[in-house]
Structure formats: C-alpha cells, structure tokens
Design a protein around this nucleic acid. Sequence first.
DNA 1: TTTATTTTTTAGCTTTGCCTAAATTTTACT
DNA 2: AGTAAAATTTAGGCAAAGCTAAAAAATAAA
Lengths: 221, 221
Amino acid sequence: MLTVSEENYLKAIYKILERSGETNASTKAIASELGTSPASVTDMLRKLSDKELLNYEKYYGVSLSREGQRLALELIRKHRLWEVFLCTQLRFAWDEVHEIAEQLEHVQSDELIQRLDEFLGYPKFDPHGDPIPNKNGSFTFRQQSVLSQIRNKDSEVLILGVRTHQKPFLQYLDTMSIHPGRKLKIRQYNSFEKIHTLETEQHEIIHLGHEISSEIWVRLA
Amino acid sequence: MLTVSEENYLKAIYKILERSGETNASTKAIASELGTSPASVTDMLRKLSDKELLNYEKYYGVSLSREGQRLALELIRKHRLWEVFLCTQLRFAWDEVHEIAEQLEHVQSDELIQRLDEFLGYPKFDPHGDPIPNKNGSFTFRQQSVLSQIRNKDSEVLILGVRTHQKPFLQYLDTMSIHPGRKLKIRQYNSFEKIHTLETEQHEIIHLGHEISSEIWVRLA
DNA sequence: TTTATTTTTTAGCTTTGCCTAAATTTTACT
DNA sequence: AGTAAAATTTAGGCAAAGCTAAAAAATAAA
C-alpha cells in the first residue's frame, strides 16, 4: 500500500516522461512538478527505488518500472473517472474538478473504481478530453490536431479537448462556451497576427490568438 | 485545515460522548475507539485543545468545544452522505460501505458535499438508518424502539436501522434480508429463550435471539 | 582542458503522529 | 484512612516527508 505522497511522485514522474518523451525524469523536473525541494525528491527516489517502483541511477534521473507504470496509470484512471463523475453527475464546471479529483484519486478501493466506471458508462475520455485508461491500463487513441494548425477556411472542427489545464485558461474558454463536444466553423485566419476567426453553432463570432488556439485539440468534423 | 488524524479524533470523541451520554470522554475510551495508545491520545488532546476544538483538563477527560462539535457533525454528515451514494448509486451492500466512506469523508470541499447532498435528494437517513445532519448540523429525530422490546403478538414493525455496524452482523442480517425499509410481523415471543418468531412480507419465518433483536431499530407500522 | 555553472546528493534538522516505559495522579478497596 | 489498582501523563524514541546548507558530480563554457 502506497502513501499519498508516494502516489503523487509516481504520477508526477509519469506526467514528466509522457510530456517530454524522454526516457528519464530529472530530480529537478520532479521537484518543480511537485513544488518540493530537489533534496526531498532524492530521498523519495531512493525509497521508491527500494520498492522497485522505479529505476534509479544516482545523478541520471529515473524511469518507472513496469509496476510503477501500472500504478501511475491506475491513479490517472481514478483521477479522470472522478472528474467525469463531478462534471456529469454533480454538474461541476470543468475548471472546478481538478483539485477535488486530486483528493478522490487517493481513496483506496478497487471495487469502488470498478463500480464508478460502470455507473458512468465506461467513459473513454474525461471532461478535458484526456483519455481514461481502462482497468488494464490501456486507453483509446484518437486522431487529433491543435486548432492553431487548421487554416482551411470554412472547414468545421469538433473540439476534443485541451492541452493546458490551468484554471484561468479553462475559465476563459468557458466564457466563450468552448469545451469538448462543441463545433466551430473556421471563418478566417490572419497570418500576420496569427488570429483565428471562428463561428459557433449559435452563430457567435470568436477571435482566438495563437497562444490560445494552439492549446485546443480538435478534429475535422 | 485539520489533518486526517485530527478529524478522526474529533469524530471518535463525538461518538463516545453520544453513546455514553456522559459529559467527558476519557483518554482510555478514545484510545480504544481509535486503536492507539493512551499516550498518543494525550499528545493529540493537548494539540486539539490548543486549537480550541475541545475542552481539556488534565486527568479528567475532554468534551468538544462548539467548533469541535460543528466539525465532528460535518464529518458525520460527509460519512453518511457518501454511504448513501455508495449504496443507492453504486449498488454496494450496506456492510461494504463503511471503510470506503471512512476515506471519502476526509475529502475537503464544501461545494462537493453540498452538491452530493443535492444529487442524492437530501436524504435524512443513511443505509444503516442513522440520521444525516443537514448543512447546519441539525438532524431529524424519529421515534424508534429496539425490536427486542416489542412483544405484542401480530403487530407489524417497520425496520428503521441498526445499532451495531459490524460487518459480520450486517452480513448476517442480509442473509435474512433484514434491512431498513422492510416490514416484519411478530408471530411469537418465547420469554424463556428470549427468541422472537417473525414473518417477513414474503411469508418467510425468522427466529431472532435477544442479542440480535436488541440491535435492530424499529417503529410500529 | 581547465574552469565555472548547474544539478544532484548528503548531512543534519523539523514536525506529525505514533510507540514503550516510567512517573504521576486518580479511583477503588479493605 | 491508607494502600492497591487503574488511568493518565511525561519522557524519550522512531519513521515519514519535508526543509536548508554544504559537498560532490555532471555539464557547459572559456
């Protein structure tokens, strides 16, 4: 049985490796991800290495062992299932669920997660469009592009998710009712200013700068 | 913000005071309730006393302060609402929910509990028949008697809840489909053996010894 | 290839929440 | 009342998980 802290380290390492694509996560990156000191990280790496949850060689960072990876994926599964529950059942907005799911994911009960998954209808994606691993740790892949790269005038795109999960960003999208499931029509692209002009299904016109539009996952509808 | 451990102490003290009816809870009783040593309890009592959550006088036990009582009731509210969720939504049996609710009750989010309460339809009682405090800490009182004291032949009783929450006891009741909401007709009472003979709505005959029947809350139907 | 910078580790300390053993206080009994 | 028993507190320690400061190793720069 792992402590909450140990679980958070595994998740942090998984995230760093996933987003960087590298084989090893550095002490510094882990410290920054968790908001702790590098010295604390070294301590924990030794501990998790002793438990054979990760492969650690002094001064050269860590990778997850098979079991470590399994546990990390299980945590991500739990986190995302709880997010679905909070949004679809308790009607939370997608920018409000992360902190709560962060706590709920540490509740220990396989049966609970199994039943929650069933209750929710075995969802494949969470409210931010991220895939939910199934109980074996495998998840659905889908073709997706970032909105900023689609410039075909008059083409329609379906919003699948977002790459950034920060509250202010999500709240901003919310004010324009941009969230997974929405359709947008591309009206214009200003290549000098890098601004998209889009139209919603309700015929509202939206202008999105490159900073924003490059954080939105879509597929051609 | 309290730690999980601090919260468990407040809850334990509340429970002891409630069931004993005394004004103060002893160090020994708290230790036994939480499965820790009396020395550990003394440490924590000083700490919670410093935070003004309880009134502590050395060697004479503790009582909860107004704020301590409020927090204890909030925890009981959270615990019982989660139990309702687990039973009614995720279809857990009533003997399986305690351990999970024990973890869920420590998730920190007022909004979450408010919405869960609403989602569940503001239930007044949990799956064991215990009252759920509302958000102000007040709960519904209802007239109830223990089954063992009702001997009027041919009278009907409605099961309201149980006084004991131990798993084996609940599982035993389950095998006879005795749980809140069920109606029973009293067929006979053997005053020598102290055994009730009862009939269910499905015309099954059940024999209950005094040990069991005195742990079941009912009201005349 | 030295030297400087960055990263990582080690050493030593703090807090939380628990423990055992010993000392103290209260309570119960004769 | 005086003593034995029970309950409580104090003292001293331990493991988890964090910290800072100093030492060591790896990387980058001159």
